[in-house]
Each structure stands twice: as C-alpha cells, then as structure tokens.
Computed example of a mutant assay.
Amino acid sequence: MPSATEQKIIDAAVRLFASQGYDATSVQEIVNAAGITKGALYHYFRSKDDLLFEIYRLLITAQSADMDRIIGLGLPAAETVREILVSLVVSTAGRVDETAVFVREMPRLGEERMADFRAERRRYHETFLAVVEKGQAEDEFSSAVPADTVVRIALGVVNQLPVWYRPDGPKTPGQLAAEIADFVLAGLR
C-alpha cells in the first residue's frame, strides 16, 4: 500500500501520462502536479521508469489478489468465472487511466521489468485458464471452444477497455462487467 505522498506522486503521474504521454511529461511536471519536492519523488522512485512500473504493479497486484480471493471461495466454475470477470472489468474500468497509460507505455520498460510483467500476466492467464478447464472437464461448460481461446477472448476484451470505455459514458463499471461476464458465460454454455 503506497504512503499518502507516494500515492500523490502516482496520481499526478497517471493524470499527466494519460493526458500528454510519458515522453512529454517531465519529472518536474510530476513534482509540481503532486505538490511535492523533487527529493520526495526520488525518495520513492529512482526514475520516471520506476514510477511507470509502479503504476502497473499496483494494478496487477490488486487484480491478482482479487482473483486469488475469488478462487479461494471454492465456488462452481461458472460463478468463479463470473466473479473473476466482474472484478477484473470493474477494477480496469475504475482505473482506466492507469490501464491506458501502462498499455500505451509498456514498451518503455526494460527487459527485467518486461519479464516481471510477462510472468505476472502469464500467472493470471494460467490461473483463469485452470478455472475454465475445470468447468469444461466437469461438463459445467461446453468444450466446443478450447479453454485457452475463451480466456484469450475474455481477457482481450478487458485489455481493450482503455480504448473504448469512458467513465462518463452510459454504463457503470458494474453494468459493463455484468454484460461482459454474461457474454463469456453464454459462450461457455
């Protein structure tokens, strides 16, 4: 959990990166927007790249913890898939700027951080995949479409939310999440 100062820095960076891009945002602009000193920023982050990675790390850590908590409930596969998708869509829509910044700026991460990113993304994918495969093995879901394809489609829809979802649009994150979950579950049945 970030400290209050660290959160101010992250929030300022997200707003600036989302509105004007990573390259066009200087450290001084982040400092000014956060209302802190440059020393305070460097106390928490060694570089602007560290700040970018932290934006992603906080998002994926929360989403992974939610998924793990849901799976730990031991619900039937359909309820587990619904809960995972609803949680994922709500958190992504609720943090659409962070998601958009990370998706757009991800290529800026170094090899080590990209490896960390890929490992966490793979873990999420494989954990979700195991839920769908279990549902198919127990005949709760149809096996007409391979589980991996179902998971790629479901996660692909969520990954594209920053492109088309608008917080001031006609649907709340909860409404959108329910519709996406219904769509995926209809395809699985």
Rank of each mutant, 00 (worst) to 15 (best):
H43V: 04
H43R: 15
F45L: 10
R46F: 13
K48M: 11
K48A: 06
L51V: 11
F53K: 10
F53A: 15
I55N: 03
L58N: 14
L59F: 05
L59I: 02
I60P: 00
Q63A: 11
Q63W: 03
A65W: 01
M67N: 00
D68Y: 04
I70P: 02
I70N: 03
I71P: 10
L73E: 15
G74N: 10
G74P: 12
L75G: 04
A77L: 12
A77E: 15
A77G: 13
A77W: 09
A78V: 15
A78P: 09
E79F: 02
T80C: 09
V81N: 12
V81K: 05
R82P: 03
I84F: 02
L85T: 07
V89D: 09
S91A: 09
T92M: 08
R95D: 11
D97M: 04
E98M: 08
T99A: 15
A100L: 15
V101M: 08
F102E: 03
V103D: 00
V103I: 05
V103P: 00
R104W: 12
R104D: 05
E105C: 13
E105T: 02
E105S: 05
E105L: 13
M106K: 14
M106W: 14
M106Y: 06
P107C: 07
P107H: 04
R108T: 05
L109R: 05
L109F: 11
L109N: 06
R113H: 11
R113I: 04
A115M: 15
D116W: 09
F117D: 07
R123S: 01
H125R: 13
E126T: 07
E126P: 00
T127Y: 04
T127P: 02
L129V: 05
L129P: 09
L129E: 03
V132S: 02
V132I: 11
S143Q: 06
S143M: 06
A144P: 03
A147F: 08
D148T: 08
D148W: 10
T149R: 05
T149N: 03
T149A: 12
V150H: 02
V151D: 03
R152T: 14
R152H: 02
R152M: 03
I153R: 10
A154W: 04
L155N: 12
V157K: 06
V158Q: 06
V158R: 02
Q160M: 15
P162S: 11
P162I: 01
V163C: 14
P167L: 01
P167V: 13
G169F: 02
P170S: 11
P173Q: 00
Q175D: 04
Q175N: 03
Q175R: 11
L176H: 04
E179C: 05
I180G: 01
I180F: 06
A181L: 12
A181Q: 08
A181M: 08
A181E: 06
D182R: 03
